[in-house]
């Protein structure tokens, strides 16, 4: 298991907290908690070690596009980058209002 932290500048406020997904095979769980700070803070815990760079790229691209002010917890069980992006988008959708940067 590996724990990683990422941080991105953010400008968009989020309406609600959100929870999607399951820590099950090929999937992940995402918790989104709105924050007042102008940044996105992401903590990733994953069972698949050695993919720091991939995580950095996937999350970097996503939060560059959706600059939401939030603390985000990701609990991963081997999801592919595509699934990760989908779950993140789903979490923001559940959370309510977000705008594209």
């Amino acid at each position: 298991m590996e724990t990683m932290f990422f941080e991105y500048p953010a400008t968009k406020e989020l309406a609600n907290k959100a929870h999607v997904g399951v820590v099950g095979s090929g999937d992940l769980e995402v918790l989104v908690i709105p924050s007042d700070e102008p940044r996105t803070k992401v903590e990733v815990r994953t069972g698949m070690t050695g993919f720091d760079e991939t995580w950095g790229k996937v999350l970097g691209r996503f939060f560059n596009q959706y600059a939401v002010q939030a603390n985000i917890q990701v609990n991963d069980f081997g999801a592919t980058p595509g699934v990760v992006s989908l779950r993140l988008a789903q979490a923001l959708e559940v959370s309510g209002k977000y705008e594209r940067a």
Binding site: M1, H19, V23, L31, R45
Partner: peptide
């Protein structure tokens, strides 16, 4: 005790297993 209540397993991380909220 929803996912934001912070009650995940205190035993899994120590065994290298990702907990669920």
């Amino acid at each position: 005790l929803d996912p934001f209540d912070g009650f995940e397993s205190p035993h899994l991380e120590r065994q290298n297993i990702v907990p669920q909220s």
